[in-house]
Design a protein around this nucleic acid. Structure first.
Lengths: 159, 159
DNA sequence: TGCAATATATGCCATACTGCAATCATGAAT
DNA sequence: ATTCATGATTGCAGTATGGCATATATTGCA
């Protein structure tokens, strides 16, 4: 279409991608800000995992979080005390302890998710239909190429 | 161009945006993983700020980080001990203490930045020139609409 | 029944981060 | 010279997270 080399195009695209990633990180951060006085980042991560997978055993949960099992037991203590999750003895196997979201925990997760959606919706709302379509297409292509990040990667930053 | 309502387009675009944001968060997280055994997230944030603004006074730095000034003094102790930053008495005003990046601190910041660039470049490299262009355009539009996130927002997530 | 395996919890201890109040060092002003 | 203001550090105290080794409870097996 134009005489610029592929390398040059790629260079620009990298810069745009990094800029957009900062912008999206801002959205993520602001959505979290609303609940950061109630939960810590690692704790929020637990809410996300439980929301994705449903109730899990202590061991499964600690493994998914990459945490030491014994560390996680006390980690869970704090979240139970805060009313974010609940412990229940396993029905079939009484030595298992099942962790579930409480309503409060689910509310917090949903609050963040909704804040994120709302901000992005508002942001896209300022665009023309053509621009929205361009954003959607670009993100679609990028997300397809990148794939879903492994849960373990996201935990590095606590989300 | 087609009969779909703006609302429907926006809805799809929101989903794509959220998906892409997870993908980008994965890139960010992996780029940090390489240095997470050397620095903590809050500490890395200091490296970013110093890299952006150059040497700063204790007070300026703690303010930019939204931290209590006395907390930050000991926070700085740890980073000095780790060889990430250095303290220097101010030249004009001897009660000021200037914080600068050490070579080690700069290296760590650059390592992360470079890892991020490299992964995005590799990712974009798998796309056709037309797709790269579409990604660039979409991200450009989105970033333009979103604007640069305030530093305070990024600090919520420690970056 | 006695013993090994499994799942979780506890004892102990270490580090990172945070805030408030008080202190120390330096510079500026009266 | 004394007093006041500024900038940073220190004392004290608390929360969150983390790991290693050990103890407890339950189950399954011999």
């Amino acid at each position: 279409m134009n005489p610029s080399t592929p390398a040059a195009v790629t260079g620009d695209a990298i810069v745009e991608t990094l800029t957009a990633s900062r912008a999206l990180l801002g959205v993520i951060a602001r959505s979290l800000a609303t609940v950061m006085d109630t939960v810590t980042l690692p704790q929020f991560r637990v809410l996300v995992v439980l929301s994705d997978f449903g109730p899990l055993r202590m061991g499964e949960l600690s493994e998914k979080l990459g945490a030491n099992q014994s560390s996680f037991s006390r980690f869970a203590d704090r979240m139970v005390t805060a009313g974010l999750i609940s412990r229940q003895v396993g029905t079939t196997n009484r030595r298992e302890v099942i962790i579930s979201l409480t309503n409060h925990g689910r509310d917090i997760h949903d609050t963040v998710t909704e804040a994120r959606r709302a901000e992005i919706a508002a942001l896209l709302g300022t665009l023309s239909p053509a621009e929205r379509e361009a954003v959607k297409t670009g993100f679609e292509i990028f997300a397809g190429a990148a794939g879903e990040p492994p849960a373990a990667d996201l935990m590095i930053v606590g989300l």
